[in-house]
Design a protein around this nucleic acid. Sequence first.
DNA 1: TCGGTGGCCCTTA
DNA 2: ATAAGGGCCACCG
Length: 253
Amino acid sequence: MTSLTDRLADLAVPLTNSQMTGVLRTIGLADSYCSVQTPAGAAWVASNHNGISFLRVGLTEQSFVAAFTDRFPNRALAKSERAPKGLTTALRTGRGRPLDTDLRGLTEFQRDVLEAARAIPVGEVRPYGWIANRIGRPKAVRAVGTALGNNPVPLVIPCHRVTRGDGNVGQYVFGTESKTALLEHEGANLTEVAELGLAGIRFVGSRTTGIYCHPSCHQARRITAKHRILASDEGQARELGLRPCRTCEPVPR
DNA sequence: TCGGTGGCCCTTA
DNA sequence: ATAAGGGCCACCG
């Protein structure tokens, strides 16, 4: 009678390293990585059959591999010459079909935060509190910041579009200057948002449409100056007879 | 009036 | 259990 181990041994097929990597990759235990150019500079990016799993800007190849291994101790990593389909274009234009991402290993809270951040259009920003509200945890503003700080795939998931409620850009994995540069590159009206923020203005409304928005919402930016109304909070916007924009979903704090 | 700040909030390591 | 983290508000001089 043949033992189970004997039968398994009969089944075993010798694999080359690259074949083994291929198998591991298919079952999500190995990632490929390559270098890509981004608006924030040269980056290394890892991906597997689930999608993009890890991206870092400004690291040597060696320290990227170290960072990946540190984060995913049980996964193999092999170099590839080809970038995942659509990645280069998506990173350059910030547009197109959303890229697949691999967010395994993150908590539900962290995934919720990152998914919400994906909803912010190119050239616009939303406050941390907007994410918190959107995921049904209005008071977890601070935790939202922490979760974004742990975003494994910056740029792919645009955590740089989340800024402080007072109009400042706030912090960023790759540094504040990089965040500012990215947002300017995307065409966000950063100085206007900052000026309004300094004056305590959170929302911009239109006398003609009766709608109020976040100041960077593309709808808000089309409002003619003489029809523009400013509001410091939701209550004031309501008093002015305005209702929230369905596109940018302005939220209190 | 405005910039600095202590205290609070929530999640994760 | 505790501390720290990409925030925010109220309060203060």
